[in-house]
Amino acid sequence: MKGMNISDQSLLRLERAADELRRGQPVVVTAGDRALFVMPLELATTPALERFDTMVTDSFVMLTNNRALSLKVAGEDWAAVRLERPSWMTAEDMVALADPTLDLASPLKGPYSRINHPSTALDEAAIKMVKWARLLPAVLAAEVEAAKAFPDQMAVDADAVLNADFAQALALRQVASARVPLAGAENTRLVSFRPTAGGIEHIAIVIGEPNRHDPVLMRIHSECFTGDLLGSLKCDCGEQLRGAIKAIEEAGGGVLLYLAQEGRGIGLISKLKAYALQDQGYDTVDANTRLGFDVDERVFAPAAEMLKQLGFGAVRLMTNNPDKVAGLERFGVTVAERVAHKFPTNPHNEQYLATKKAKTGHIL
């Protein structure tokens, strides 16, 4: 598995760099003797730009191919696309360039000129770094020498960034376990997992006393604040969560992995932006790509590692998503059976579920 040799210290630096980015501060992403000095576009302010420009020269904007295409920038299917930074572009323009929910209120000036620079691992790592910080995947960047001194900025290695998902999964450790009786499943234990270098925790909900020798009935459930907690009708997540707990209890036991992967891995704030785009007429897939993300940003390495630590090598997976089957098997967990797990539609999620069937291969 990629990322096996990434140290806890490297992962810790990624977490610290993500904190800097979420405060609108620049970080340095390095690859050998090359480096990019980057700051998140959606948090651009006039003072931040002035400071950025005193530290580097020849800056440019960098977006994902998905966002560039939505801006009518002809692409070459490069994962990261560099655009020239025009002289008229203000901090407000940069924020609007990053955030498509502002397209109607702040019509983009354009046209934008693409720099003929096929994306490199360094470019892709810079974009992934802002994703890691749960920000929109768009940055202001400048090429610098890796050896150049930026004493106030965090520096991270591009290879560590690109492989962080897998390295962090391998670094998961059980940190707490407690019996928590649930409505309809009183014999339940919650087991929390945290990466050794820090990061967001995932939770295993172990119901009953499942047999470790036979394939266990289980579900991977990505957290959904709006659906799970608030009962949102825009999705079917809350029904899937409670339905899975009920089904596992009735089957005599099993496990539900509750993963911190809100909004298919883009984070709660970006998910709300995607909802705003859906209100403008975009479907759930087009909303994610217009924001610059992939259709699904999740990885299932954490789920596989949690199952292994809990002693489950084979599963009966409750899902309508074939990608989850492939995702678990990629990381060494045998999926003995896919168990259908669907619920009736309502007027608010009917189109959402139809899009999942038509565009993401869900079996509904």
Rank of each mutant, 00 (worst) to 15 (best):
N5I: 07
S7I: 07
S10H: 06
L14F: 05
L14D: 06
R16G: 04
R16L: 14
D19E: 15
R23D: 12
Q25R: 15
Q25H: 11
R34Q: 15
R34L: 13
V38P: 11
L41D: 02
T45M: 04
T46G: 02
A48T: 14
T54I: 01
T57L: 04
A68E: 02
L69S: 13
S70M: 06
K72G: 00
W78C: 14
W78R: 05
A79F: 04
V81T: 12
R82S: 13
T90A: 03
A91Q: 04
V95L: 12
P107T: 01
R114F: 01
N116D: 15
N116W: 11
S119C: 13
D123C: 09
D123A: 07
L135R: 12
P137A: 07
A146M: 09
A147V: 06
F150Q: 13
Q153I: 02
A160I: 05
A167G: 10
Q168M: 14
A169W: 03
Q174V: 15
Q174D: 02
A178E: 10
P181R: 02
G184R: 10
N187A: 10
L190R: 01
R194N: 01
G198V: 12
P215S: 01
M218A: 07
H221A: 07
C224W: 08
K234W: 03
K234N: 11
C237V: 09
C237R: 13
C237K: 08
A244N: 11
E249L: 08
V255E: 08
L256P: 11
L259I: 09
A260E: 07
Q261V: 01
K273T: 10
K273G: 08
Q278I: 11
Q280D: 13
Y282I: 02
F293S: 02
E297C: 01
V299L: 02
P302T: 01
E305T: 11
L310D: 01
R316Y: 07
V325N: 05
E329I: 05
E329S: 12
F331I: 05
E337C: 08
E337D: 11
P344H: 08
Q351F: 10
T355E: 00
